[in-house]
Design a protein around this nucleic acid. Sequence first.
DNA 1: ACCTGAACACCGTTCAAGT
DNA 2: ACCTGAACACCGTTCAAGT
Lengths: 205, 205
Amino acid sequence: MTAQPDPRPRTPLTRDRVLRAAVRMADGRGIAAVTMRNLAADLDVEAMSLYHHVPGKADLLDGMAEAVVAEINARVGDSAGATTPDTWRDAVRTRILAAREVMLGHPWAPGVISSRTTMNPAVMRYFDALTGQLLGGGLPADLVHHGLHALGSRALGFTLELFQTADGAPGPDAEEEMAQVAALFPNVAALMPTAVHDADTTLGW
Amino acid sequence: MTAQPDPRPRTPLTRDRVLRAAVRMADGRGIAAVTMRNLAADLDVEAMSLYHHVPGKADLLDGMAEAVVAEINARVGDSAGATTPDTWRDAVRTRILAAREVMLGHPWAPGVISSRTTMNPAVMRYFDALTGQLLGGGLPADLVHHGLHALGSRALGFTLELFQTADGAPGPDAEEEMAQVAALFPNVAALMPTAVHDADTTLGW
DNA sequence: ACCTGAACACCGTTCAAGT
DNA sequence: ACCTGAACACCGTTCAAGT
């Protein structure tokens, strides 16, 4: 018997399907695995087919960043309405925690988002809503502006960690390492007792 | 006449020479031009020779980041001594302005520094000195710790800009674009008058 | 010890051709 | 319109060989 061609035509490729597959692949196998070729294979398609739905790799990354922030926007949803001087603190806090939670599900997103140099609509929408909530709270415009700068990436729920040891998890001789670091960098070492208690509040990178 | 071989042996390759060439190349031709092959050609050497002085591309980037921060440390130099409650503000300000100035000479550095995930000694030294100056000023440890977090990359003299239009320079129809943005994102637009006056205080990216 | 040439296993992307 | 195969012009890196 000869093989029958599959009667059901496979679901057609779409920019949206491509982006969704890219996000899923980054979640599961890391951002480095997201190559045009891998992504195509994952979609059972030739690499070059992707170019009919996405202009190129750069646009793919832009789209992935946008998809994640859109996920945040969707989660905050209609609860992101107007604020008053009484309610803005909770509203902003809720928003940023939502962002943080979404980022935790896409650990590659902070890196990708901050590597994109051009603004994207979802991020714009996010910051616009956040700004609206701050202004609604009665904060003067210049304070809001400087506040957003001061918040930096924390406004999107993540922190760019400058401090990070070479080996992620503390090894068996962590104490000895600590002692060496303390000797070389006494001032930073003096901060350690303070730093430990909220070590779990930062989102890695 | 037959060509005589150059009697002077060329200056031997060195990790330091490799890093210096990489920094110079990134300054002049952008970080994207810094490939192992380009770098080797620049040094009149075969690409594979680099691997005798640098373990790989990742280490090269680490080294470049370290070189730039070391340049900052060297510039601040001995003026980075002890502070008192009276002097710490000026000292910290001077330090950060020095960092900023060095970064302006290496526009690729912020991107590279924040893309490196492991700590490097020069950055550590920088933060240790900064921490020392803050503690010397009499600030309590927990405030210093949170302050460093709040400062984020600004402590190193640069800001990760989230806002940036697709086309760097404002084009001829910038006003029309502005109007469209304002309509879509009214809250951010409300910040514009505040934002303009210090537009030149941010270090691009 | 240091440098080289060739090769390997990848990239993103273009092009001409298929359906 | 959408997808394909082959090819182009690159990457970083390994290896065996030269000096």
